[in-house]
């Protein structure tokens, strides 16, 4: 009995041993698969700061985590456009002092001064993404140009969509010629009918890694974020990536500091580090979203302009979200 106790307490001591981090820590909450682990590890080594890294897979989950944790739990978060706006309204963010970020000048001006935070007081662009349709041309020979081309019977159980109600219902609205941010009940209903019709072709909803479905040949068509599609294309060059003709969503994720963050100094160090040209390039090399810095530009200028002009941001729709909720439960 005593021996067991000793063994167990030894085990506890071993487990509890913490590495010494001279310069404290920083609590980062980021999207799952967004920053390669090596980059975090190198930051820790370079600055001797421990990074506590948590992940989330939707803006709503982020909001939930921030509001259900006590103040000062997290330092840096990466909310998308509409969530920045909402968090500003809810007074959850801390103004960013750009003077403390040496690499600020590396940020591509095209991405600054967006509607959700016109003077970039609370947010700085991190990565952008658009929804695209990815099609495995090995299997699907038809010419697919937009959402309304997805109804064919032969695509039964052959499509993966994002597990995101705003994107999926937004896509159904765009397919019907409405705005992605429509709140009118009748228009929403026609979106719902559109989705119910498409349902037989949908194999799965997945936000975290729809590319896996394409790579493992589980499906041949997917509506996903561009980076996922590009990675899938690296595995299978015959995957075609299409900007849907009815319109597509654009999302801009941002660096933001949480109000009452405890490790402000380290947070600036972390942001500055991520904006450094060599580090930044590594991120978009591994996860090929749209790079928002000058040094790491990975779309040609015209495509970038097109994406920024034609892409629609998901907007905050307040209480109308309840109607989206219900449609979502009905589709599933």
């Amino acid at each position: 009995m005593k021996k067991i106790m000793i063994i167990i307490s030894l085990m506890l001591i071993l487990c509890g041993c913490e590495k010494n981090n001279l310069n404290g820590e920083v609590n980062v909450l980021n999207w799952s698969s967004y920053i390669p682990y090596e980059i975090i590890n190198e930051f820790e080594k370079e600055y001797n700061i421990k990074v506590n890294y948590g992940t989330y897979s939707s803006n709503e989950e982020l909001l939930a985590k921030i509001s259900s944790s006590s103040p000062g739990t997290y330092d840096i978060i990466f909310p998308s456009d509409y969530m920045v706006e909402l968090m500003i309204q809810k007074d959850m963010l801390m103004p960013i002092d750009k003077n403390r970020i040496k690499n600020y000048s590396n940020i591509n001006k095209l991405f600054l001064r967006q509607k959700f935070d016109p003077n970039n007081i609370y947010s700085l662009p991190f990565l952008a993404a658009t929804t695209v349709i990815a099609v495995n041309k090995d299997k699907v020979l038809d010419d697919i140009r937009g959402y309304n081309d997805l109804f064919k019977d032969k695509y039964k159980n052959n499509i993966v969509l994002l597990d995101d109600q705003r994107i999926v219902i937004g896509m159904s609205l765009q397919a019907n010629g409405y705005s992605m941010n429509e709140v009118d009940k009748n228009k929403l209903n026609s979106g719902k009918d559109w989705l119910l019709k498409l349902n037989k072709n949908i194999k799965a909803f997945d936000s975290d890694s729809p590319k896996t479905f394409l790579i493992t040949n589980e499906v041949d068509i997917g509506v996903m974020w561009n980076a996922e599609a590009i990675i899938a294309k690296e595995y299978n060059p015959n995957i075609e990536i299409i900007y849907p003709k009815e319109g597509f969503a654009i999302s801009l994720d941002n660096y933001s500091l949480v109000k009452n963050a405890k490790n402000v100094e380290n947070s600036y160090k972390f942001i500055n580090y991520l904006l450094r040209s060599d580090v930044n390039k590594k991120i978009t090399d591994e996860y090929p979203y749209i790079n928002t810095t000058y040094s790491g530009m990975n779309l040609d200028y015209n495509e970038l302009l097109m994406v920024l002009n034609q892409g629609t941001y998901v907007e905050n729709i307040g209480n109308n979200i309840a109607n989206y909720d219900k449609i979502w439960a009905e589709i599933k």
Partner: peptide, 11 residues
């Protein structure tokens, strides 16, 4: 289930 079926737990 591929996120296609919600059970009460998901809700």
């Amino acid at each position: 289930g591929g996120g296609k079926t919600m059970i009460i737990g998901n809700l």
